[in-house]
């Protein structure tokens, strides 16, 4: 296990190198957080509560999802595909560790960096500009930590599988782009899943994508508590396990037919 800890540590360190990049991203997130807050203000003034969200809930959801983009890697990351494309993957495959575990560890290192240096500042900016709803119960913070950890796993497993497409096609980004559009929409990033029409809502809430953004946001907003909270975390855990299992299966298939680019 120590090796995965050390890998994660280095992935964290690696992000530290690109401080300027993070600052630029932070600025972008803050801008979009503000821009998306404006129509929310208008909508809630006109309609009052929507699907159990009051204005402050909605604003908190808005800033939370902005904060989570990089933590859960909502819009991808093509490093795995890039190593497959370049052939550098051979080094990772000739190591006595799990290929999936290697990248999962890297993703956790990356996620922790973005939690501290992206998500936290974004939420604080939201607080300064609009005043957010903060958890009322201490236990929520513990639940949030678990939910975020699982969200990272689900987001990773999904993205990782899209990346593995690079073993079959030279343009994994093309295939992956479609997948990411789907996950952006279905994760509760564009609009809260509670706002979906009645017939569609149960479906999108059951899908794994809900566990990437909506569930941690719900936990933070304390929209799920008690047994509902346990259920939400359980559903996340189930999807995380299933998707990681599927990803591992795909690794086995992919490496059996691996074509290393560039001879």
């Amino acid at each position: 296990m120590r090796v995965y800890l050390e890998i994660g540590k280095r992935a964290f360190q690696r992000e530290l190198v690109y401080r300027t990049k993070n600052l630029a991203g932070l600025f972008t997130n803050a801008c979009f957080g503000y821009l998306r807050a404006v129509p929310l203000l208008a909508a809630f003034e006109a309609r009052g509560d929507i699907a159990g969200y009051n204005l402050q809930d909605a604003l908190t959801w808005n800033w939370t999802v902005q904060a989570l983009i990089m933590v859960v890697g909502l819009w991808g990351g093509w490093e795995v595909a890039d190593t497959i494309r370049s052939g550098d993957v051979v080094s990772d495959l000739s190591k006595p560790f799990s290929f999936l575990g290697f990248w999962l560890a890297r993703d956790y290192g990356r996620a922790i960096y973005y939690l501290l240096f992206r998500a936290l500042p974004v939420v604080l900016i939201g607080q300064l500009l609009f005043g957010l709803r903060w958890p009322h119960h201490a236990i929520t913070w513990a639940a949030l930590a678990v939910s975020l950890a699982l969200a990272v796993s689900i987001g990773f497993a999904f993205r990782f599988m899209l990346n593995l497409a690079a073993f079959w096609t030279t343009d994994a980004r093309g295939v992956g782009g479609l997948g990411l559009i789907a996950s952006t929409f279905l994760s509760g990033f564009l609009i809260p899943l509670a706002f979906f029409p009645d017939w569609l809502r149960p479906v999108v809430q059951a899908l794994p994508f809900a566990g990437i953004v909506q569930t941690p946001a719900d936990v933070f907003l304390e929209r799920v508590t008690g047994w509902a909270l346990m259920g939400a975390l359980g559903q996340q855990a189930l999807w995380a396990a299933l998707l990681l299992g599927a990803a591992q299966g795909l690794v086995v298939i992919a490496t059996r037919r691996v074509v290393v680019q560039g001879g």
Binding site: R2, V3, L5, E6, I7, R10, Q13, R14, V17, Y18, S86, G87, D88, V90, S91, D92, S94, K95, P96, F97, G262
Partner: peptide
């Protein structure tokens, strides 16, 4: 893998963004 070492001349197993020692140090755990 524990008993072999591999160098692919046109590739690198080193972490591109980190000081060389970090890559070497990681191998102790790998």
């Amino acid at each position: 893998a524990r008993h072999i070492g591999v160098v692919f001349g046109q590739r690198t197993q080193l972490w591109w963004d980190l000081p060389l020692i970090e890559s070497l140090d990681l191998l102790r755990y790998v």
